[in-house]
């Protein structure tokens, strides 16, 4: 129980830290309004030109709800890579590493606290905007399934971002890796468009990659909930979590040997 207490305490203090400036936090969440207005205009035109109610089996309101969830995932993605890189550059890492806790579990706790408020406010504000434009959301019974899938997606994103962050132990600067990751998530994760719109071969590849389980899967489940889809998504997320979690543990153990903390 004691180890859990530590990480719960770390989660709580980071949550307090995040909420030290609530108005700034809330202000940042309003960016989802702009994104949803732009997407609404874009997809209204696309559906209008196609002259159809559904594109690749998705209705216009369904598309907007899909994009709202995808944007919520993107805007609440853990920023752990940037945090680790900053800690290496400034030498703050010295304090993070010399405490009796697991380095990765520490970052997991702080990142989750960091994302939680953003995830809730983005989903709430984004949901209100889409409701006002396109009416009621998908069936409520699917929401808890999507919420669980969102947590799985967050954990997958954490593993991938932390792997990029650990590269800072060797390279210090990781912004180029972050850029590549974000673009992969945009296309292969289905953030710009659902994977149904990709060419057949690319869709087949993308559906098997972790990016899809970290974004497309939960967003698609939200607009088209089914128990079968939920279990399949959860299984895929678990497999990728095991693979990426293992890679993360390995990378951390190896990376610690190469670490050069700046300053002093």
């Amino acid at each position: 129980m004691r180890p859990f207490n530590k990480y719960w305490a770390i989660f709580k203090i980071q949550l307090l830290n995040v909420m030290a400036y609530p108005s700034e936090l809330l202000g940042r969440s309003f960016s989802i309004i702009i994104f949803m207005l732009v997407f609404a205009s874009l997809w209204r035109t696309a559906y209008g030109i196609a002259g159809t109610d559904t594109l690749q089996g998705i209705t216009l309101p369904g598309m907007l709800w899909y994009l709202m969830i995808a944007e919520t995932i993107e805007l609440s993605r853990p920023r752990v890579s940037t945090t680790i890189s900053r800690q290496v550059k400034t030498g703050e890492l010295a304090y993070v590493l010399n405490k009796p806790y697991n380095f990765l579990a520490y970052h997991f706790s702080t990142s989750f606290a960091d994302s939680l408020f953003r995830m809730l406010t983005n989903a709430l504000i984004g949901g209100i905007v889409v409701s006002l434009m396109f009416g009621s959301p998908p069936p409520a019974w699917g929401w808890p399934l999507a919420a669980i899938a969102l947590i799985g997606a967050w954990a997958l994103n954490f593993c991938m971002m932390a792997l990029i962050g650990l590269a800072a132990f060797i390279t210090e600067e990781i912004s180029s890796f972050e850029w590549i990751f974000q673009k992969a998530l945009f296309i292969l994760g289905g953030m710009m468009i659902p994977l149904e719109f990709l060419p057949g071969w690319l869709r087949t590849v993308a559906e098997r990659l972790p990016f899809a389980y970290a974004m497309y899967g939960p967003a698609r489940l939200f607009i088209d909930p089914s128990l079968e889809g939920f279990y399949s998504l959860l299984a895929g997320q678990l497999v990728w979590l095991l693979v990426l979690g293992g890679a993360l543990a390995l990378a951390y153990n190896r990376g610690a040997r190469y670490l050069a903390v700046n300053g002093g």
């Binding site: 203090i13 307090l16 830290n17 030290a20 400036y21 400034t90 030498g91 703050e92 010295a94 304090y95 010399n98 300053g263 002093g264």
Partner: peptide, 15 residues
């Protein structure tokens, strides 16, 4: 052991 790195804060800055 306890450590103090004089140029780096370990206290949560906003709290």
């Amino acid at each position: 052991i306890g450590t103090v790195f004089g140029q780096r804060p370990q206290l949560w800055y906003h709290l």
